[in-house]
Amino acid sequence: HHHHHGSGALAALHAEGPLAGLPVTRSDARVLIFNEWEERKKSDPWLRLDMSDKAIFRRYPHLR
């Protein structure tokens, strides 16, 4: 159930192989992290948004 927010940013994801479903670039990863943060913020208003490279690598090590 993907609803768009204002920016309408869509992340490019790997379609197949071992990385299927994972973001292709760091900016794609940022979109995913932001979208998930927006969702989680509803139940956790104090949740901090962390889109640093460090956060991205921790989450998606293949982007190193």
Rank of each mutant, 00 (worst) to 15 (best):
H1W: 05
H1T: 12
H1K: 11
H1Y: 07
H1D: 11
H2D: 10
H2T: 11
H2L: 13
H3W: 10
H4T: 09
H4R: 13
H4W: 12
H4S: 10
H4Q: 10
H4E: 08
H5D: 11
H5R: 13
G6N: 12
G6C: 14
G6D: 12
S7F: 12
G8A: 10
G8C: 12
A9S: 15
A9L: 13
L10Y: 07
L10K: 15
L10S: 15
L10F: 09
L10D: 14
A11T: 05
A11H: 05
A12H: 13
L13E: 04
L13N: 03
L13A: 04
L13V: 12
L13S: 04
L13Q: 04
L13K: 06
L13W: 01
H14P: 03
A15P: 13
A15D: 13
A15C: 11
A15I: 11
A15M: 14
E16Y: 09
E16P: 04
E16F: 11
E16K: 08
E16S: 13
G17Q: 03
G17C: 05
G17H: 03
G17I: 02
G17V: 02
P18Y: 05
P18N: 07
P18D: 07
P18M: 06
P18T: 06
P18W: 05
L19N: 07
L19A: 04
L19F: 13
A20T: 09
A20S: 08
A20M: 13
G21C: 06
G21E: 03
L22G: 01
P23T: 00
P23C: 01
P23V: 01
P23Y: 00
P23R: 00
V24C: 10
V24H: 04
V24N: 02
V24Q: 07
V24R: 11
V24I: 13
T25P: 00
T25G: 07
T25H: 06
R26D: 06
R26Q: 07
R26N: 09
R26G: 05
S27K: 12
S27N: 13
S27V: 08
S27I: 11
D28P: 01
D28H: 03
D28N: 01
A29G: 03
A29K: 00
A29D: 00
R30K: 10
R30M: 13
R30I: 11
R30Y: 08
V31D: 05
V31R: 12
V31W: 11
V31S: 08
L32M: 07
L32R: 02
L32T: 04
I33F: 05
I33A: 03
F34I: 07
F34A: 05
F34D: 01
F34P: 00
N35C: 12
N35S: 10
N35G: 07
E36I: 04
W37N: 01
E38V: 15
E38W: 15
E38D: 07
E39Y: 07
E39M: 10
E39Q: 10
R40P: 01
R40Q: 12
K41P: 06
K41S: 11
K41D: 05
K41C: 09
K42C: 09
K42E: 08
K42Q: 11
K42V: 10
K42L: 10
K42N: 08
K42A: 09
K42W: 07
S43N: 14
S43Q: 13
S43I: 12
S43T: 14
S43G: 10
D44H: 07
D44Q: 07
D44A: 05
P45I: 06
P45C: 07
P45H: 07
P45K: 08
W46G: 14
W46A: 14
W46Y: 15
W46F: 15
W46R: 13
W46I: 08
L47Y: 14
L47D: 05
L47S: 10
L47R: 06
L47W: 13
L47T: 11
R48Q: 12
R48P: 13
R48K: 15
R48D: 08
R48W: 07
R48M: 10
R48H: 12
R48V: 14
R48I: 14
L49M: 05
L49P: 05
L49E: 01
L49G: 14
L49V: 06
L49F: 05
D50C: 06
D50Y: 04
D50H: 04
M51W: 09
M51R: 03
M51L: 14
M51Q: 05
M51P: 02
M51H: 03
S52Y: 02
S52L: 01
S52V: 02
S52A: 03
S52G: 05
D53S: 06
D53G: 05
K54R: 10
K54S: 12
A55L: 09
A55S: 06
A55K: 06
A55R: 04
A55G: 05
I56D: 00
I56R: 00
I56C: 02
F57A: 10
F57M: 11
F57H: 11
F57K: 07
R58M: 13
R58E: 15
R58L: 13
R58T: 14
R59G: 02
R59E: 08
R59K: 12
R59L: 10
R59F: 05
R59H: 06
Y60Q: 00
Y60C: 01
Y60V: 00
P61L: 01
P61Y: 01
L63G: 00
L63I: 04
L63S: 00
R64E: 11
R64I: 13
R64G: 08
R64Q: 12
R64T: 09
R64D: 09
